[in-house]
Amino acid sequence: MDLSDTYANAPYILDAEQYPPRWAASAAAYRDEMTARGRLRAGLPYGEGTREAFDLFLPEGRAKGLAMFVHGGFWLAFGREDWSHLAAGPVARGWAVALPSYDLCPAVRISQITTQVARAVTAAAAEVPGPIRLTGHSAGGHLVARMLAPGMLPEAVAARLAHVMPISPLSDLRPLMQTGMNEKFGLDAAEAWAESPIAMPAPELPVTVWVGSEERPAFLDQARWLAEAWGCGLVDAPGRHHFDVIDGLTDPESAMTGALLA
Rank of each mutant, 00 (worst) to 15 (best):
L3Y: 12
N9Q: 14
A10F: 07
Y12Q: 08
I13A: 00
Q18I: 06
P20H: 08
S26D: 13
A27T: 12
A27Y: 04
Y30S: 06
E33I: 06
R39G: 03
L40R: 10
A42R: 14
P45N: 04
G47M: 05
T50A: 14
R51K: 13
E52L: 02
G61T: 10
R62P: 12
A63T: 08
A63Y: 06
K64R: 15
G65T: 10
G65A: 01
H71W: 05
G72F: 06
G72N: 12
G72V: 13
F74M: 11
F74K: 13
W75Q: 10
G79T: 10
E81W: 03
A87P: 03
G89K: 09
R93C: 13
L99I: 15
L99W: 00
P100L: 08
Y102M: 08
I110M: 00
S111N: 13
I113R: 00
T115Q: 15
A120G: 11
A124H: 08
A125C: 05
I132L: 04
A139P: 01
G140K: 03
G141C: 05
A145R: 02
R146Y: 03
M147R: 13
A149L: 11
L153A: 07
E155T: 14
L161Y: 10
M165A: 10
M165L: 15
P166W: 06
P169S: 01
P169D: 00
S171L: 09
L173A: 03
R174C: 04
L176N: 03
L176Y: 03
Q178S: 15
T179I: 13
A189G: 09
P197T: 15
P201Y: 07
P201A: 07
P203A: 08
T208K: 00
T208M: 03
G212F: 00
G212H: 03
G212K: 02
S213K: 14
E214I: 02
P217V: 02
L220R: 15
D221F: 01
D221G: 03
Q222E: 13
Q222G: 04
A223W: 00
A223G: 09
A227E: 06
W230V: 11
G231C: 12
C232G: 07
C232E: 11
G233Y: 04
P238E: 04
H241R: 12
D244M: 02
D247G: 10
A255Y: 07
A262Y: 09
